[in-house]
Amino acid sequence: MRSVTFRDALNEALHEEMARDSSIFVIGEDVATHGGNLAVTKGMAEAFPDRIRETPNSEAAIVGVAVGAALAGMRPVAEIMYVDFVTCAMDEVVNQAAKMRYMTGGQASVPMVLRLPCGLSQYTAAQHS
């Protein structure tokens, strides 16, 4: 059986899916430069130049953009650099992404992926470092 790291598996899956489906894009902090903070998106900015979107340090807006894009028919993969920071975006996660389908009586759906890396190493404490 082939053995790969989580990082390479994620990178490979993103490459395959983005090649297959043009509505998929990645959005998050530092996801293009040097292939992302944890190199999960390595090589992707070159392969998909318009679809790897680097953002300011604005977690709520990152998830908000993903929710809006998903509602409008895109398939966003939003990344929060460290899971600790998702709390900055809890309104978008809980009140928007999670409830939208119910609130619209099933008329709207929010097909998005939210990546929240954690467990990077033993040195990442309560607030990521």
Binding site: T55, S58, A60, V65
Partner: peptide, 14 residues
């Protein structure tokens, strides 16, 4: 609220 400022900043840079 913070999202007001985050959203305007994003719209501006892009």
């Amino acid at each position: 609220r913070g999202t007001f400022h985050e959203a305007i900043n994003m719209g501006a840079i892009w």
